[in-house]
Amino acid sequence: MNLATKISSLSLSNPTMLASGILGVTRGSLKYAMENGAAACVIKSISLEERTGHHAPNMITFEGGMLNAVGYSNPGVKEAKKEFINLKELPGPVIASIVGKDAEEFAAMAEELLPGEFSAVEMVLSCPHTPGYGTMAGQSSPDITEKITQAVRAKTDLPLFVKLSPDSPGIGQVAKAAEAGGADAITAGNTMGPGMILDVITGQPILDFKMGGVSGAALRPIMVRCIYDIYKSVSIPIIGCGGVINGRDAVEMMMVGASAVQVGTAIHYRGIEVFNKITKEIEDILEQRGDSSIKDIIGFTHKLEE
């Protein structure tokens, strides 16, 4: 069974990747995820300056998944360059994740962080819970998406992924704008919401930021529809992300158009070994269907409509 896949010029030994914002704070945690089957890892997002993020609680779970408002805690680009060294010695490619307040800051991030170590870059326009960034700064509109993508494109030759919000009305149009700006792939996508969960004894929202992005199973059907829409709108590859817990979920995302999937919340349910488990489950489903390669299922649902 051939489980290898490709996103632009990036080759992956299997379709599972570590999603940004889950582990990924340290080089060691990337190594740990790869030792457990992640074909590639996206680091936790880096901003120009150091950020301590929101106060805790910043991650809680519920029946349908997880709610988080971490607030882009990260050591800033200078410290990040010291943390993420010798990445080519790791068994798989490492993808940088960058955030910024505007196109200029994104361009500065690309220029400073990317040269040397990273195999690709994911730029995030879609965080739902950090003032000044993502959807809270209007970065998920088609116009701004195209403008920021162009600014980063001008600074790097690495494969460039743009991470979109499932809350975008007409996500196909946003993906098109990213493609027009020079993106090599779309990551679909970020958490949705924000949502809220209360402690009903005190009546207080549990997250210190009061609201946070929703990930996990509750997000998955929405993201499957987003990927379905994006596939019809662009010709660049899509990376699925949002509530992939098992092989069935991964195959589902690939059938509507994803070339690979990112995994995050599922680590809570199934341990760090979740990458190996999902890959094995994908293999089982492909065997059951009589497929010989992962490529047979990418966009399969769309082919039924031809």
Binding site: I22, V25, T26, G28, S29, M59, I272
Partner: peptide, 19 residues
């Protein structure tokens, strides 16, 4: 540490990357 249940990655330790 932030989450306490193995997700946020804040408490991973070098060299192993374990939480």
């Amino acid at each position: 540490m932030k989450c306490g249940f193995g997700i946020c990655g804040q408490c991973t330790i070098d060299s192993s990357g374990q939480r």
